[in-house]
């Protein structure tokens, strides 16, 4: 797995002396076709694309991502559509890593092994499962690794240092650091300095791991965190989709412009 697409991507961004830009959009928001178009278009600027599988009881998501998820479900998105969006995307953008992100019940209902098999078929590079923390995720993470899928562990400001150690030991090529106590889409309530201090504690334990920061990152805040290996932006993008729909504007153009601006700020 050392040579996973995710790892290679970080190698490139590091050589360019900048963080990787990681976008999050919800699969099927607001339709299957549109979300693929958005994905294709923003991947010109994004280094890694996270694709959320929408859930109607998301206990860790704020308003913007909830709105996107409910909209996608209302428009009839199914798990098989999510895989087909990912597969179509990977056909066009072979070298762009794609990470699926969602809640464990979807995987549980689909069946873990079948889910992993579908991920392989669609060339999914990684998985984030919000409500399957360490050590409960050990078995599943191992299964993913065996099939060359990165299981991405999360660390939060509440994670104790002994736990951080264990999580790093059990992580693959990428670790996700949650910037603050918040659901997605919250205002950055901690200073970037403090976030980076916590972040460096993780890096110090193992500098070879690619650690990205997410939650509360906007056009305004992104630059202040550009020392990180990668930065994840989600709610801002979901909100742009909502706003574009409400104003009857072109979602693809609007979202792409935002991602372009985000990228310019950290180049």
């Amino acid at each position: 797995m050392r040579d996973s697409l995710i790892h290679q991507t970080f190698k490139i961004t590091k050589s360019e002396n900048r963080p990787a830009l990681i976008t999050y959009t919800v699969a099927g928001d607001n339709t299957k076709k549109k979300s693929l178009e958005i994905l294709n278009s923003i991947s010109k600027y994004a280094d890694i694309c996270e694709l959320g599988f929408p859930h109607n009881t998301p206990i860790a998501d704020g308003g913007q991502i909830q709105t996107s998820a409910y909209r996608a479900i209302k428009n009839g998105i199914k798990i098989k559509d999510i895989f087909s969006i990912a597969a179509e995307f990977k056909k066009i953008k072979k070298n762009k890593p794609i990470i699926l992100m969602g809640y464990y019940n979807m995987i549980y209902q689909y069946n873990e092994n079948r889910f992993i098999k579908e991920c392989q078929k669609s060339k999914i590079d990684g998985l984030i499962v919000v409500d399957l923390p360490f050590p409960e995720n050990k078995t599943f993470a191992k299964k993913c690794k065996k099939k060359n899928i990165n299981f991405i562990q999360l660390i939060s400001p509440t994670t104790s240092s002994s736990r951080i150690k264990q999580i790093i030991r059990n992580s693959h090529d990428m670790i996700y650091y949650i910037s603050m106590l918040s659901t997605t889409g919250g205002k950055l309530k901690v200073s970037p300095k403090k976030i980076l201090k916590e972040y460096s504690k993780i890096k110090k334990q193992n500098s070879s791991k690619n650690v990205v920061i997410g939650f509360g990152i906007t056009e305004k805040t992104i630059k202040s965190l550009n020392k990180a290996d990668g930065l994840v932006v989600g709610s801002v993008i979901c909100k742009a989709i909502t706003d574009s729909i409400n104003k009857r504007q072109n979602t693809v153009t609007n979202v792409t412009n935002i991602v372009k601006r985000l990228k310019n700020r950290i180049k």
Partner: peptide, 21 residues
């Protein structure tokens, strides 16, 4: 030890932030 009754009911499927609390 993982909080399951009968091996499959219960548990703690929680975001990382809630692990410590």
């Amino acid at each position: 030890k993982y909080g399951f009754w009968g091996g499959k009911f219960g548990g703690s499927f929680i975001p990382e932030t809630l692990k410590k609390p």
